[in-house]
């Protein structure tokens, strides 16, 4: 795919998110819009999901598409656990840790075997899914809520992937690794409770 087009799309998405964020309360819980907003409003979720995309781009094929497939599917299982009310210890810490470790992987340009990356991302997805599942509204429109929620998650991955494609250039590689470093620090900030 044309990198320029992807970057343009990426910028458009970020701008769209900004516009959406201006509406502090969507009010209509259970709607597509509130589902779409849910993953975007939590910064710990946002950075972790962007990190999944970034790392996928770093790892190349098949990780670039395998991780964005694994993440939502396992996240749904975590969501089901959350809806079922099954307790999962240290969910918030797990989410923060996921961002931190994924950030470290990107910053170090780590390239483990694909199954290791998939398992790691899958384990993190359980925490994210559980957190979303416990907050999934029982009110009208669970399907459209889920559609919005999954779409937003996928778009965050796409943002990560599109930024990750910068690694084609030496300066881009440094930029992406620097973003990984920032994600690590933000994740650490969430973990220790500073953010």
């Amino acid at each position: 795919m044309n990198t320029k087009k992807l970057l343009l799309l990426n910028m458009g998405l970020i701008m769209a998110f900004g516009a959406v964020s201006a509406h502090s309360d969507t009010g209509d819980h259970g709607s597509f819009a509130s589902g779409f907003m849910h993953p975007i409003l939590g910064w710990d979720h946002v950075i972790a999901m962007v990190a999944v995309g970034l790392w996928g781009a770093f790892l190349g094929k098949p990780a670039i598409w395998l991780l964005p497939i694994v993440f939502p599917l396992v996240m749904a299982v975590g969501g089901a656990l959350g809806v079922a009310g099954m307790p999962l210890p240290a969910v918030e810490a797990g989410i923060a840790t996921s961002a931190m470790l994924l950030g470290i992987m990107i910053a170090m340009a780590a390239k483990p075997p694909i199954w290791v990356a998939a398992v790691l991302v899958g384990v993190f997805a359980i925490f994210h899914g559980h957190a979303h599942g416990t907050e999934l509204p029982e009110s009208a429109g669970p399907i459209v809520y889920s559609m919005g929620f999954v779409l937003a998650t996928g778009l965050l991955h796409l943002i990560g992937i599109s930024f990750g494609l910068l690694i084609r250039w030496p300066a881009g590689k440094i930029t992406v690794r620097a973003i990984g470093g920032i994600i690590t620090l933000v994740g650490l900030g969430f973990l220790v409770g500073v953010l």
Binding site: W65, P68, I69, P72, L73, M75, A76, V77, G79, A80, V83, A84, G85, G133, L136, E138, P142, I143, S146, M147, F149, V150, L151, G154
Partner: peptide, 20 residues
């Protein structure tokens, strides 16, 4: 393929909601 995984994800979440 990613779209397929999204469909499955949506459906898993809603089925779990219907069950639990």
């Amino acid at each position: 393929r990613i779209f397929g995984s999204w469909i499955a994800t949506c459906a898993i979440l809603v089925v779990s909601l219907l069950i639990f």
